[in-house]
Design a protein around this nucleic acid. Structure first.
Lengths: 265, 265
DNA sequence: ATCATTGTTCCATTATTTGGAACTTAATTT
DNA sequence: AAATTAAGTTCCAAATAATGGAACAATGAT
């Protein structure tokens, strides 16, 4: 029988947990705290059932219920995340190289990893300004319109890439955002050849970047690093120049991981 | 079977979710990624059961399984936390006041909230240095040996305070850490009178702080803000002077919350 | 005061989880 | 290299927890 080698679509049958995570997603993705009835409408479940599920989530600290009966994400999530982040080896190894790159260019440097269809940002090194702390770290962004995302996609074997791209639903964030699988796939192939990727204001108007892919040997991490900044300051010419240092930094990070993790495998 | 009729102590009966959260705690609190067998020993459950539970957590992205069969916290937790943090109203309202306090004193300023027996740090504003981003934010620290923690405890009604303190297990982090309920309770009473609290190197040697309590009217948030720094620079005399600005900032934060949230309740 | 809406509890039915054992795979020893 | 041990995975009847409809309580509007 098939172990997960084949990589077909997961049936996502995680029973009770799966149902609760859908709720947690619902509440954390909302723009504002939701009342019971709001969630009832969104979740489409019987009232009794929903009530118990929410109660369990609250009891575990994953959600919080304020005095007005509105549900908001729980602070226990912060504790989990802080631990997840603090011990992340990929990030620990990458950090000094990100700082180097930041100093060399003066612009903001990101580290991100592909998870499903999203890039999750693991680190961000900025210039002098008082940092907006979680501003980017932890955020999940689409893979098809970010430099790190496209760099990460260029690491996928042809088949997985086609499957993943086929499952995307494109949102046109700016005039340059890819909105078709064909043009995206064409660019990914180009990126795979070149070894670096650009974001030409595809996610946010006025913001562009150069990115290079980074991966761990066991393919647990497939992501990238990028130099990001305002388009008026970062011409395409400059971004092309920076492709080299970004790739070098990516190489040093992977070397660091081989030294740290390699011996055992 | 018994429903929890009396209702004093929480029976923590969240069924399936509760069991899975125990596992998640186990893995996120470990110092390094754990192998299946390690978790088996720690969790004390049948192998079949544990295997399925871990599989579900992995499928949902709450845990990750690397190429060596080691379980680590999942990156989906970061996404949840980023959302939880970004929309937190208490933090949003407090932020400008924390920045003011930082500028006025030149030292690091924290915002924390009481959750169970822990203080969870919601924000941190530092001086010039390139910020170590999650360094403190999201971290859960004991309430009995931090300035913010003791300030928060001073807000509890007498009965809840006694219950909470009775349930603490004290760890002696430094020579000044409280290790008995009696001395702690005595100090909390003093803090309740004064309206501010000190940390005299009780959690970390060489680090001290002044803190003032902050709370929301519905008591959803009971926490505090603090000015923290190295003991060689922050004399007790200086900390006493800063008690006033910390209390003023705390007052302004609460005023901000009344304006923002008050009208409705 | 009355009606409508929102939120909570109850319990027989249904679905999921449990845990022991059998099985497969990887690592270690002889 | 074969045998042995340990590590990880799958299976299924029994135990447990989740479900959802309906009754009940609390809140808010007319």
């Amino acid at each position: 029988m098939d172990s997960n080698g084949g990589g077909a679509a997961q049936a996502r049958e995680t029973g009770t947990l799966g149902k609760l995570m859908v709720l947690l997603d619902l509440v954390t993705h909302a723009d504002a705290p939701l009342r019971f009835t709001d969630i009832l409408a969104l979740a489409g479940q019987p009232r009794g059932t929903l009530h118990r599920q929410l109660s369990h989530l609250v009891e575990e600290g994953l959600l919080e219920l304020d005095g007005d009966g509105r549900y908001a994400p729980g602070l226990r999530l912060l504790d989990f995340a802080a631990r997840s982040w603090a011990r992340n080896e990929f990030r620990l190894i990458a950090e000094p190289h990100l700082a180097d790159l930041q100093r060399a260019t003066g612009e903001t440097v990101h580290l991100g990893v592909l998870r499903g269809q999203s890039i999750i940002y693991l680190d961000k090194v900025e210039g002098r300004q008082p940092v907006r702390m979680y501003s980017q770290i932890g955020n999940a962004s689409p893979c098809y319109c970010t430099g790190v995302g496209k760099a990460a996609l260029s690491l996928l074997p042809a088949e997985s890439l086609v499957d993943l791209v086929a499952s995307l639903s494109f949102t046109s964030f700016t005039a340059s955002t890819h909105i078709s699988a064909e043009t995206l796939l064409a660019e990914i192939r180009e990126i795979a050849d070149q070894g670096y990727a650009f974001d030409r204001e595809e996610h946010e108007a006025g913001i562009c970047c150069v990115a290079a892919p980074v991966w761990s040997e066991d393919r647990t991490f497939m992501g990238g690093i990028s130099i990001t900044g305002p388009a008026y300051r970062l011409s395409m010419e400059l971004l092309h120049q920076w492709a080299v240092p970004v790739q070098l930094a990516a190489g040093r990070i992977m070397e660091g991981m081989r030294v740290r993790l390699g011996p055992r495998r």
